[in-house]
Nucleic acid binder design. Structure first.
Length: 460
RNA sequence: GGCUCGGUGGCAGAGUGGUUAUGUAGGGGCCUGCAAAGCCUUGCACAGCGGUUCGAUUCCGCUCCGAGCCUCCA
């Protein structure tokens, strides 16, 4: 049983064999920090977090690097709009990003490099590209000359002759070839910039990931990942930069596996500013528990598009509640966590088939109530160990379901009403009893008559 | 125009050359004074048309529909 991953490079599911079996290395292209992260950013973060967790079940040492891009035209624009200093914007949104992802159970990467800490290395790479005749300077810009790299298009499977040049973006007049992309561009005052052999300026997009991945992991490393939209042009251009000056001519000499997650749509439409349907994690976190959002993000296979709707959040929320109820039922059973059963591990290792894992989790849960003691131990172990990799079921079931709110709520008042209701029930005054139930319900308190007496929980 | 990926029950979503995916919602029932939770039970789902096959939702072809990308994007 070993890990298989869909490799964008080959378009096929491949057996995962690390370059160094003692040390798995993975780089995920992280966010540009100029705004709150949206649910699409979160999907990438959660999927890669899951991938790292799964890798850790198979390999002793895993190093996960995910960068912060903190110099970019979008940041400059945000600064112009708000009047806020660039550095203040980037440090603020870096923190917000990390906090918001943390709420989704995403662990910090082992290394989180920042672009602005690597300007020197970027300049050095540009110089090497110029020296190798792969890039040229024009009007204060340095451009990568795409026709000079024969493998261009190999990842995105694009034949340049068949594409419509500049179909969506105007071609700058100083480009030798319409596909040439910027490595360095001038930064007229007061824009942020650095001194370079080509004048005061700033790096183009793509460069930071070439530099930081090599610096933090060495080449070749195992997995280079990101959202599906990064395949072209971002990853293609990274490959061009990295693979045209070293002995690493092929993308697999840069990273062996190229791993991409699908898009998130919102209520059937593409998320976009113009439609105004961007779902920010920061806002979602206020409304839903992190595990609910995380499970919803994992409810479809990572490669598939995910249609983000209120309805699926609700469905996943109910599913989690039920799983927690099963755990509550099993709360007097103590277990020692191990890896999930082979059947579940197989699904993890089969290109992270999370929907199938979730189905198996539910099947386990289904058999809980009528199971023998031994079986219950196994069920609980399996639920918790699977949850641990998925990043769910890590809360205390009582707390999750709202039973242990005594210190936070006005419990004396609640207890008084419950006693009053029980009095009414004893005297068969069911009208009064039901009125009290409704009163409590209005306060968000659900009461349940059990054989151990009446208990209550906060229902929202 | 080019490239890529899809179309599965009300919704979400795996999977398979012949057997119940799973969840959620709905129907019926048990339990309950009423609830909640739980339990039992239930639904002619595989876009269309051809082909291969003893047999196709699964393989092949075509058609229709949808999504993404073609230098802003996760």
């Amino acid at each position: 049983m070993s890990l298989q991953l869909q490799n964008t490079l080959s378009g096929k599911k491949e057996l995962f064999e690390p370059v160094d079996p003692e040390h798995v290395r993975i780089y995920a292209c992280g966010p540009t920090v100029y705004n709150y992260a949206h649910i699409g950013n979160a999907r990438m973060a959660v999927v890669n977090d899951l991938l790292v967790r799964v890798l850790k079940t198979q390999f002793k040492k895993v190093t996960y690097v995910s960068n912060i891009t903190d110099i970019d035209d979008k940041i400059i624009e945000a600064s112009k709009e708000t009047g806020e200093e660039i550095y203040s914007i980037t440090s603020k949104y870096t923190d917000i990003y990390n906090n918001d992802m943390s709420a989704l159970g995403v662990k910090l990467p082992d290394i989180q490099p920042r672009a602005t800490d690597h300007i020197k290395e970027m300049i050095a790479l540009i110089q090497k590209l110029i020296d190798a005749n792969k890039a040229y300077e024009k009007n204060g810009h340095v451009l990568f000359h795409v026709p000079s790299f024969e493998n261009y298009g190999i990842l995105s499977k694009r034949n340049r002759d068949e594409q419509i040049a500049g179909s969506r973006v105007e071609v700058a007049p100083f480009k030798k070839d319409p596909a040439d992309f910027v490595l360095w561009k001038p930064s007229p005052s007061p824009l942020p910039g650095w001194n370079s052999p080509w004048g005061f300026g700033r790096p183009g997009w793509h460069l930071e990931c070439s530099v930081m991945s090599e610096k933090s992991l060495g080449l070749p490393f195992d997995i280079h990942s990101g959202g599906i939209d990064l395949v072209f042009p971002h990853h293609e251009n990274e490959i061009a930069q990295t693979c045209s000056i070293s002995k690493h001519k092929e993308p697999k000499d840069f990273a062996t596996y190229w791993f991409h997650n699908g898009f998130v749509n919102v209520e059937g439409e593409k998320m976009s500013k113009s439609i105004g349907n961007i779902r920010l994690v920061h806002e979602l976190n206020k409304k839903y528990k992190g595990e609910v959002l995380r499970l919803t993000l994992l409810s479809a296979h990572y490669k598939q598009p995910l249609n983000w709707t209120e309805e699926i959040i609700e469905q996943n929320s109910k599913m989690l509640d039920r799983l927690y109820r099963v755990l509550l039922e099993l709360s007097d059973i103590s277990v020692k966590l191990e890896l999930p059963t082979d059947s579940i591990m197989e699904s993890f290792l089969d290109d992270l088939n999370t929907p199938k894992i979730i189905a198996k989790l539910n099947e386990e849960a289904n058999s809980a109530s009528s199971a023998s003691k031994d079986r219950k131990v196994k069920i609980k172990k399996n639920l918790l160990s699977t949850g641990k990799i998925l990043g769910i079921l890590e809360d205390d079931p009582e707390n999750w379901l709202g039973y242990s709110q005594k210190s936070k709520e006005n419990s004396e008042e609640i207890e008084r009403l419950i006693n009053q209701r029980n009095e009414a029930r004893r005297s068969k005054n069911f009208n009064l009893a039901d009125t009290i139930r409704d009163t409590l319900k209005d306060k968000g308190i659900e009461i349940e008559d059990t054989d151990k007496g009446t208990i209550w929980r906060k229902s929202r």
